[in-house]
Design a protein around this nucleic acid. Structure first.
Lengths: 330, 330
DNA sequence: TATCCGAATTGGATCGTTCAAGATGGCGAG
DNA sequence: CTCGCCATCTTGAACGATCCAATTCGGATA
């Protein structure tokens, strides 16, 4: 509308100095109650907002967080990111931060993106997703003392950096327990080849749950790449065994969906449980393990702001429990 | 590493003044070739980057675009946003802009978010998705002369503001034509209640395609809210008619998925085509109309930067053609 | 009454960039 | 030879916030 409202406008209006207004905003406790209120009122009536650019220039902090938005490899699992992003943005807003996106095709480019974001935009922190064994990104960031949180455990060293994750083993264990309770004994597992932290973890949850129930898991699982087709043929393979399973837990909804197709053709009574509770699962009535993505995002922001606001250097990691969403397939 | 590299560091290193460095960056044509190269070299060796905060403070422009990330209403259609966002971020990066996210539960809050983003972050422009008839957001933005593009037509006045959209009518027409070519004559349509621009458009495409083929569309369509259950019972209703359709075109993958369930129970030969080519469609083998989201995003950025860089006040809107992704269901 | 204290407030400098205006030097026209 | 012009480059000021050091002021103490 009219003139630009700066801290000086507010100061004049409240008959105090610029510094007092600044104190009201940043260190309210050192300002007398009465003065503080007068300033607050002026801020409200004038509709004043701190110029982030000016503040940033002086303090070197931008109140900006960055997340990489991935090239949606697999359409099914890609939609997980969607919910995570929303949660992140929402929680960040409450904490006074904003979320900025960036893309990167490979790790080298991603590090180049860090350099740009840090030096040009003075980014405060990063949220990483899908960190790997010995991830060069975390090393790079740690070396430069840039604040970051990973959504996903650093599998080699759990204290390497702050992280938030969902307990995948607990998820598959829960799914297995559900099937056991339903009377199933021969419960199979469709997962990925050994070596990926996430995949091994999910397989372990199933295996341990079976063993605990006194059942030998040997021969009841298969390891394939992720995908619907892979799920279908490996399930068919499983069903062709001497003693085929009467139920199967899968490491992803993609695999589960494939398994479902094999099951429909062979023996529709076989129960199937997926992982991630993607829209596809909801749409097809697939029972699936659901990750609390909104909460995961919120905790990521919590950890990051804890570091940024100097409360603590390395806040306690967070391991969230998934839940089982029951639908028609189990 | 060492000291912070500012424009002054570069100037000293290249033995020119600050302003000359600034000119190299912003108005290279007024700098002598030889000097320009020397400055460019200095920039490269020192790894200098413009401080966006300082630039923003002086110019009032932030090179930041904002997009709202929605609360993922329907999981199925929600994942469309994912792909769009990725395209947006990627194209924006090339044009020297960054994408910032925000959330808002309703229109009033969204406008409040505009105020904050504009005054606190000096946002340059907005990308709106899902604009409605007489959308208060577009009015608000237009009144304040804030740059924005909508992904989705302003249905009441096509010249109201810059927009990018996908030709939904062409999509359903293409789907219908495909079915006609396959020999189908009684082709039904499952769509939404009249009143939504997008829905009416998609219905019109089907209707006109049928008429053009000399077929009366009367009685062959249903109008229901979006959803799998709705799709299922309205399809069942359609199949119960005297002369049931042998194929059906749907306004969304959700409806199509419901229709598919009804079809499987009644007459598996009936062909079904969805809309949006969501991951669910890919996973379930549903033939669907696919929107070029990546390109749509890119064109949004193009339009927005055209306005921002002052090339033109109101650039020509863009209408993109969807394509038909053939799978098993048609 | 003089002195001191600390809480509250003030004015000036500063962050890194761009804008506006001024300086320099070469060259051709009068 | 001088003037003006153009192209090129330089200098000082400003954007709006925060930090720092200095100052005011009411009240407690000697």
């Amino acid at each position: 509308m009219s003139e630009k409202v700066t801290i000086a406008t507010v100061a004049r209006h409240a008959r105090v100095s610029r510094q007092t207004v600044s104190n009201v905003l940043n260190t309210p406790h050192i300002v007398r109650e009465e003065t503080r209120q007068r300033v607050q009122e002026a801020i409200a009536t004038l509709g004043y907002r701190v110029s982030q650019a000016a503040r940033q220039m002086r303090t070197g902090r931008s109140r900006l967080l960055a997340v990489r938005i991935e090239p949606t490899r697999d359409g099914i699992n890609g939609s997980v990111l969607d919910r995570f992003l929303h949660g992140l943005t929402e929680t960040a807003e409450v904490a006074g931060y904003r979320v900025m996106l960036y893309t990167a095709d490979d790790t080298a480019r991603e590090i180049a993106a860090y350099e740009d974001l840090l030096s040009a935009y003075d980014l405060d922190g990063f949220v990483l997703t899908g960190t790997d064994h010995g991830d060069p990104r975390t090393a790079w960031l740690a070396e430069r003392e840039v604040a970051f949180v990973a959504f996903g455990r650093p599998w080699d060293d759990l204290t390497a950096h702050p992280w938030v994750d969902v307990d995948g083993a607990a998820g598959t264990a829960r799914a297995t327990a559900h099937l056991l309770a339903r009377g199933h004994r021969r419960i199979g597992f469709l997962g990925w080849p050994a070596g990926s932290g996430v995949g091994d973890d999910r397989r372990a949850g199933w295996r341990d749950a079976l063993r605990e129930a006194g059942i030998d898991p040997a021969g009841l699982d298969r390891a394939v790449e992720d995908g619907i087709a892979e799920g279908e043929w490996s399930m068919r393979d499983l069903l062709d065994a001497d003693e085929p399973p009467t139920a199967v837990v899968c490491a992803s909804d993609s695999l589960a969906l494939g398994a479902l197709q094999a099951v429909r053709a062979a023996d529709p009574a076989v129960a199937v449980i997926g992982f991630d509770d993607t829209p596809v699962a909801a749409a097809t009535g697939l029972t699936s393990v659901s990750q609390p993505l909104g909460e995961a995002a919120a905790r990521c922001v919590d950890l990051l702001t804890a570091v940024l606001d100097g409360d603590q250097q390395s806040p306690e990691p967070v391991l969230l429990q998934p839940s089982l969403v029951l639908r028609h397939t189990a």
